[in-house]
């Protein structure tokens, strides 16, 4: 199919050198995170998690358990933060909302025909409206990767802009599904489209496609956020999702955020992890740091 070049995008995306990106990422992973830096980092990671369940088999019972976990990650340790949010399908928003009432933990709903995005705009609008009506605090939408790969960037841009219009003040996370985009140049282009179309957050993946979040992809997206900030003076958030399951790799992501964007971004207002298994590994490490002992996985709740 012919690639169209007439887009209303306000900028053209810079090129990305994959070898250079990978080299930079290797340097983040060689930072040594010890003692109080480690404890503080682990707590920060916990406070940034969007605890996620996105399965056809989700039930109110499962979602309620997840919500409890979000509010009480591990009550045996006293000064732990809650997670940032729970992330569910629109049909589960009401259940989660009720469970989390008064806790400060947000409810994020995936929408726009998640995960494939293969639906007409009116269906995506209805999907999003439903989630908003149910009380979602945040919307995680997917972009139309098929259209993007056809070069129909304006279509992708307009769709995001439309969903943001519906969301109003509700924060919108735009999932690029980078595992389907093919190159870091495309990741960068999709990031710029999303940011200029009104995304509050850009997010790597649905978690349904492998590879999901990787450090190189996240770095390219953080650089897009940095450029957007340099140009507009507006901060935007980042959410790597899927594939980050160890505390150690999560700390490497924090190093990347700190050194790429700065410490202002090291809060769950601007950085999130989309993950289901990460929380328990973080808790295990926190307990290890406090007691010097690794507990078995059976000492931590699996929800």
């Amino acid at each position: 199919m012919k690639k169209t070049t007439n887009t209303l995008l306000p900028i053209s995306s810079p090129t990305v050198d994959q070898v250079g990106v990978e080299e930079r990422c290797a340097k983040f992973t060689s930072r040594s995170i010890k003692t109080e830096t480690k404890i503080q980092g682990l707590k920060m990671v916990l406070s940034m998690i969007d605890l996620t369940t996105l399965e056809g088999a989700d039930t109110p019972g499962k979602v309620k358990q997840l919500c409890y976990k979000a509010m009480h990650p591990h009550d045996a340790v006293s000064d732990l933060p809650t997670t940032a949010a729970v992330c569910v399908y629109p049909s589960m928003v009401k259940v989660a909302k009720k469970e989390l009432e008064g806790s400060g933990v947000k409810v994020a709903a995936v929408s726009t025909a998640f995960p494939s995005g293969q639906a007409p705009l009116n269906v995506k609008i209805a999907d999003t409206k439903f989630a908003l009506d149910q009380g979602a605090d945040e919307i995680d939408m997917v972009i139309s990767r098929g259209k993007f790969l056809c070069g129909e960037y304006q279509f992708v841009f307009d769709e995001i802009a439309k969903i943001k219009e519906l969301c109003g003040n509700i924060r919108l996370k735009v999932i690029l599904e980078t595992g389907e985009l093919g190159s870091l140049d495309d990741v960068r282009k999709a990031s710029d489209i999303a940011l200029y179309a009104g995304a509050d957050f850009i997010k790597t993946s649905t978690g349904k496609i492998s590879p999901a979040a990787t450090m190189p992809v996240t770095l390219v997206m953080l650089e897009a956020i940095k450029d957007f900030y340099f140009k507009t003076n507006k901060m935007r958030g980042m959410k790597p999702a899927g594939g980050i399951s160890t505390a150690k790799s999560a700390l490497h992501y924090l190093v990347m955020v700190k050194e790429t964007l700065g410490e202002e971004w090291l809060t769950n207002e601007w950085f999130r992890f989309g993950a289901s298994r990460l929380a328990n590994d973080v808790l295990m490490q926190i307990v290890k740091q406090k007691t010097g002992i690794y507990h078995s996985v059976d000492y931590f709740s699996k929800d």
Binding site: M71, H72, L80, P81, T82
Partner: peptide, 19 residues
């Protein structure tokens, strides 16, 4: 219940010495 942290109270994050 654990504390919900929205603010920037955790954001100063410097690398501890690792000699």
């Amino acid at each position: 219940m654990a504390k919900n942290i929205k603010t920037k109270e955790l954001t100063e994050w410097n690398y501890a010495p690792a000699p």
